[in-house]
């Protein structure tokens, strides 16, 4: 989706306004305004400590912001909790903390919302069947849904984590460093999966250090620096050198992020 006119009319899935967060004396986020749209892969880039992780933790309800608000579906929230975020369709695919190693693939996909039969027993058959369908739809290849997750490769684990997010009725999916510590072909598969989620109409937010990957999948690239959103690019209007310039701060930046500057960049 790169039709700018269409983009302008669309309603953002989540709208963040003036989000601020400090840890003691350290200001992690200093007034972030950000919109994430359905059907769009948005990449959030920035140096270590720029505030990317803090921001996605706020969106997924793990952290509470000191100031600012989040609006979703016309409702405005001061902060979210993990379960509230899930109810609102936001799910986060964490690189390491996502899965319970000792449980099998199907149990992980259904973790937290296992179907029951006779009001007590977990409906294992249904879990297995639906997990298989879901994984097939996402084109994630896994030997068996009854394999404990600890025996899977990084890419397969990522696939299971994505399947779980979608199974949680996620409409917005956040990826934290999805390709870190992954091989080349494995990364390619994960990137393909992320891209296809965007095409299927999910709102996708990706954090990555790998600009090559970011340019492969993202429709929009936002640069965070020192807790501020310093630049919001359409991918086709920029190049990696320019983005690096904004990440490191060697490029001049406007400082303020306003509605006008967004439209200017579109």
């Amino acid at each position: 989706m790169s039709n700018d006119a269409a983009q302008g009319k669309r309603i953002p899935y989540i709208r963040l306004r003036n989000i601020k967060k400090s840890f003691g004396h350290v200001i992690a986020l200093d007034g972030i305004d950000l919109d994430v749209y359905p059907g769009e892969v948005m990449a959030l880039v920035g140096d270590n400590g720029a505030g990317k992780s803090t921001l996605i933790k706020i969106i997924s309800g793990v952290l509470n912001p000191d100031e600012g608000e989040l609006s979703l579906n016309g409702k405005t929230f001061k902060h979210l909790t993990p379960s509230r975020a899930i109810e609102l369709g936001i799910s986060t695919v964490y690189q390491d903390l996502a899965l319970v190693d000792c449980l099998d693939v199907a149990s992980n996909i259904f973790l937290g919302r296992e179907p029951l039969k006779a009001c007590f027993f977990v409906d294992k058959k249904r879990m297995n069947r639906e997990s298989e369908e879901l994984l097939r739809r996402l084109k994630v290849s896994i030997p068996s849904v009854t394999t404990p997750v600890e025996f899977l490769s990084g890419g397969q684990r990522q696939g299971v984590a994505v399947a779980r997010s979608i199974n949680l009725q996620g409409r917005m999916i956040i990826f934290d460093e999805p390709t870190a510590a992954m091989g080349v072909s494995e990364s390619a598969r994960v990137l393909e999966l992320i891209r296809s989620l965007g095409d299927e109409g999910f709102a996708v937010l990706v954090i990555s250090h790998n600009l090559h990957h970011v340019f492969t999948i993202a429709d929009r690239i936002c640069v965070i620096r020192n807790g501020r959103l310093v630049k919001d690019f359409r991918t086709e209007n920029t190049n990696p050198d320019q983005v690096v310039g904004f990440i490191t701060g060697s490029n001049r930046y406007s400082g303020e992020y306003t509605e006008e500057s967004i439209t200017a960049w579109r």
Partner: peptide, 17 residues
């Protein structure tokens, strides 16, 4: 399931709501 998951990865369970 949750008993075992608590021992396996408490944080993952928490983040599943």
């Amino acid at each position: 399931y949750y008993t075992v998951a608590l021992g396996g990865n408490e944080e993952a369970l928490r983040r599943s709501g």
